[in-house]
């Protein structure tokens, strides 16, 4: 099953809509609740990142009976140093992102903790693509 969502820059009101929809689909498929939580937490973190740091982007989700693949691809400033961005506590978030309860430099590390496969591809001035997989 393939699902696509559009993420708009700065649109915090709708942050999490894709994750919420994926959660409903996985529940209907009777996927184990602990796996659902890992999927939606990781996807939500990625969604919030695309809204907070980039100029919008796409969320692409492919669900099979044994795994979920998620791609969050943004048009954005890109990440100059991915290893640094993966470090807990490193953040470049603006004050308004912090006002929403995010921007503590925990997003990418938390995605890593929740998924079975994480791949971050980024080009400065072009954008960032986060690919994630969780096995059911």
């Amino acid at each position: 099953m393939h699902q696509e969502y559009t993420v708009i820059e700065g649109d915090f009101v709708n942050a999490g809509k894709a994750s919420s929809s994926v959660k409903k689909t996985l529940k209907q498929m009777n996927v184990e609740p602990s796996k659902i939580k890992r999927v939606v937490v990781a996807l939500y973190e990625a969604e919030v990142n695309a809204i907070a740091h980039a100029y919008g982007g796409k969320v692409l989700v492919d669900i099979d009976s044994d795994k979920i693949k998620m791609v969050v691809a943004d048009k954005g400033p890109g990440i100059p140093d991915i290893a640094l961005a993966m470090q807990e506590g490193y953040s470049t978030a603006r004050p308004e992102v912090r006002d929403m309860g995010f921007g503590a430099g925990m997003g990418l590390p938390n995605m890593q903790k929740n998924v079975d496969k994480l791949n971050v591809i980024s080009e400065v001035g072009v954008g960032t693509t986060v690919e994630m997989e969780v096995n059911f």
Binding site: F12, G16, M100, G101, K113
Partner: peptide, 25 residues
């Protein structure tokens, strides 16, 4: 800090002063 809430493995009651739609999401 919602980033902290997203790291929890358990499901406790949340006490927070952050009052916006992202708290609920």
């Amino acid at each position: 800090l919602m980033s902290d809430v997203l790291t929890l493995k358990d499901t406790p009651m949340l006490i927070t002063g952050l009052c916006n739609v992202q708290t609920i999401r």
